[in-house]
């Protein structure tokens, strides 16, 4: 009777081993196939056509976008919004003379600009930034440098 049991287990073990092997192997196989998928995605992204846009087009678009962003920041600034005389904000309006802001407000606008465009504006450049047009020029120059 003992022999029978031994024989039975001997017969059973090959099947057991293969089952456990499969369960061990399958995750690795899955990972490999995932990796291939990721690789393919990366490749197709790098060669997508969107990166081939002419440079002049992009520059024009950027200027318009920067202008809009700068004007929006200034128009939405509390002091400008709540000014009783409701000054019209144009690219040429002087922040201090035309919009009735002081140097502290100017600094606050600069902080907002830094947050929007993502780089530091050094202290020494504050005096150069008196109108939205000057700000736009300045930002474009800085963006071109990077």
């Amino acid at each position: 009777m003992i022999r029978q049991v031994v024989r039975a287990t001997a017969r059973a073990t090959p099947g057991l081993i293969t089952a456990s092997q499969i369960s061990k192997c399958s995750p690795r196989v899955l990972k490999v196939s995932n990796f291939n998928l990721v690789k393919q995605n990366l490749l197709s992204n790098t060669f997508s056509t969107s990166s081939f846009r002419s440079l002049s087009d992009q520059a024009k678009q950027d200027t318009a976008q920067v202008e809009e962003k700068v004007l929006n920041i200034i128009r939405n600034f509390d002091r400008v919004k709540e000014n009783p005389s409701k000054p019209q904000v144009s690219l040429e309006s002087n922040l201090i003379k035309d919009l009735g802001l002081d140097s502290l407000d100017q600094v606050e606008i600069i902080v907002q600009l830094e947050d929007t465009f993502g780089y530091e504006i050094p202290d020494s450049d504050y005096e150069k930034l008196n109108t939205p047009a000057e700000i736009v020029n300045y930002i474009q120059k800085r963006l071109a440098e990077v």
């Binding site: 140097s103 502290l104 600094v107 600069i110 902080v111 202290d123 504050y126």
Partner: peptide
């Protein structure tokens, strides 16, 4: 100097934003 005060103001505002 004016810029010194303004830069102090700016760093305070920036820090508070955090």
């Amino acid at each position: 100097s004016r810029t010194k005060v303004l830069s102090l103001y700016k760093s305070m505002i920036k820090e508070s934003n955090k």
